[in-house]
Design a protein around this nucleic acid. Structure first.
Length: 470
RNA sequence: GGCGACGUAGCCAAGUGGUAAGGCACGGGUCUGCAAAACCCUGACCGUGGGUUCGAUUCCCACCGUCGCCUCCA
């Protein structure tokens, strides 16, 4: 089996074969730290987390880089407004971003380069481009000349003729002087009192696109294996990255481009400007569980399909996580029996099907379909047979392999660990055990209702009473 | 206007040229003192109209509907 991913550039599935055998170099576009990221942003970061996890299962080594854009117009505006330095303006948002990553169980990238830490690399890259003659200077700064890069537009498929400036209504009125509407800024000149850097290019600050080229080259080399982002980055961001990177190096910049579709709300793209967004702290305050949020964002739809954020699917996700958790717990608590080879075979088949779906362009919805189909069968089989320890190990392996990608069980366990019982709860649970021993079911039910009001759900099993958070 | 995507049961959602995975919800059962968990049973002919084909939900065309990108938004 081998992993195939949909490549935006060629519009077909490409087998992942790292440039350096056994070592995948992955670059994913990170957030602009001017605000709290919303869950639409995290849908993309979660898709990338799933990709990262599956790559690590498939290859000996993965190096993952995610940039933090800590300089842009909004940030400069806000910092100026707040009379702060840029670093002071971005610090709380960076902190919030990492907190949210942890809440969602997103594995840390190996490097989180910040644009402001790579000014020298950007300057050097711009100088290389100037030497190649694909730039020009105007009063506003230094621009990349699209006309100097014939392959421009291949990634987005937007024909040059179709690029009508202002069609989207998003061109700034005070845009800098450019020869062609499609040209983009590499370096923007700023005044002596504005936030900026004094460099060989003069006082100024970098354009947006150049940071990703400079930082990915610095950390991953001039050609890298996989570059990801949201679909809204295809044009112009990634198109421009290709142009400036390849114009400078003469080498292919990226082998496979992967883009995650949007999360929508009320069927429209979740966006700060539209006001239809949710942040993780909002959702946690409303009582939603990180595991359910992660599960929905990952499995709710294939990563190249839009997913609409809604309450009902979120509740469904929470239930599905519960089902998976119940199964995991059941398997763990299985005693040592004998035989049950068909159980082991069923589990192995499911693990196999799961892996095949993942290899097929990360088809997570299909993969979990195989997982849950197996869980039903296995629950039934386990009602009749307590299998051998070896078979139990296969069941555990199925859950672990699936959750190595889904990553929800650690979130469930974290929540459990954090929600220790209060002394009052302990007391009620103990009393319930006692009255049940005396077969006083009326009192037992009364205590159960009381506990439920306190958010604790008790259930009686053959092994005795157990509880969980409602 | 240009480029592109999507429209599958109440909701979410995979998928295939030969009569549709999975999750949630609903209803009926088994088990249980009751409940929970688990299991069993029950539901769609895949937006509309054409075409290609022995056969299409899956390929092609048109239409309707929804959405995304078209300069700094994941």
């Amino acid at each position: 089996m081998s992993l195939r991913l949909h490549d935006t550039l060629t519009r077909r599935l490409q087998t992942v074969t790292p440039l350096e055998p056994g070592h995948v170099r992955l670059y994913t576009c990170g957030p602009t730290v001017w605000n709290r990221a919303h869950i639409g942003n995290f849908r993309t970061f979660l898709f990338e987390d799933v990709l990262r996890r599956w790559l690590e299962r498939s290859f000996p080594r993965v190096t993952h880089v995610m940039n933090l854009t800590d300089v842009d117009d909004r940030l400069i505006h806000n910092a100026t407004e707040h009379h702060q330095r840029l670093a002071e303006e971005t610090a709380p948002w960076i902190e919030g971003f990492f907190a949210d990553l942890d809440t969602l169980g997103i594995r840390r990238a190996h490097h989180y380069p910040r644009a402001t830490g790579y000014i020298e690399e950007m300057v050097t890259l711009i100088e290389r481009l100037e030497a190649k003659g694909v730039t020009y200077r105007s009063d506003g700064g230094i621009y990349f000349r699209i006309a100097g890069f014939p392959r421009y537009g291949r990634l987005s498929g937007i024909p040059a003729a179709g690029l009508v400036a202002g069609r989207s209504g998003r061109v700034d009125a005070d845009d800098y002087t450019k020869e062609d509407a499609r040209d983009f800024a590499l370096w923007k000149t700023v005044g002596p009192d504005d936030i900026g850097w004094d460099t060989r290019l003069g006082r100024g600050r970098p354009g947006w696109h150049i940071e990703c080229s400079a930082m990915s080259m610095a950390l991953l080399g001039e050609s890298l294996d996989i570059h990801c982002g949201g679909v809204d980055n295809i044009f112009p961001h990634h198109e421009n990255e290709i142009a400036q990177s390849e114009a400078a190096t003469g080498k292919p910049f990226v082998r496979i481009w992967c883009h995650g579709e949007h999360l929508t709300m009320n069927r429209e793209k979740m966006a700060k400007r539209l006001g239809n967004f949710r942040t993780l702290p909002d959702l946690l305050a409303a009582g939603y569980r990180p595991a359910a949020i992660r599960y929905l964002l990952i499995t709710g739809a294939h990563y190249r399909r839009t997913l609409d954020w809604d309450e009902a699917p979120l509740r469904a996700a929470d239930e599905a996580v519960g089902r998976l958790t119940e199964f995991r717990d059941r398997v763990r608590s299985l005693g040592a029996g004998s035989g049950g080879e068909e159980i082991g075979a069923r589990a192995a088949a499911a693990a196999d099907a799961f892996a095949r779906a993942m290899d097929d362009d990360l088809n997570v919805p299909e993969a979990v379909g195989h997982l849950f189909g197996a869980i039903r069968d296995l629950n039934r089989l386990l009602d009749a047979v307590t299998p051998s320890v070896a078979v139990r190990q296969q069941l555990i392996a199925l859950v672990e392999e699936a959750d190595a990608v889904l990553g929800v069980l650690p979130l469930v366990d974290r929540e459990r660990a954090a929600s220790a019982l209060s002394p009052e709860d302990e007391e009620l649970l103990a009393r319930r055990v006692a009255v049940r021993a005396a077969r006083d079911f009326a009192e037992s039910d009364r205590i159960r209702a009381q506990l439920l009001e306190r958010g604790i759900m008790v259930e009686d099993t053959a092994q005795g009473q157990r509880w969980k958070r409602a």
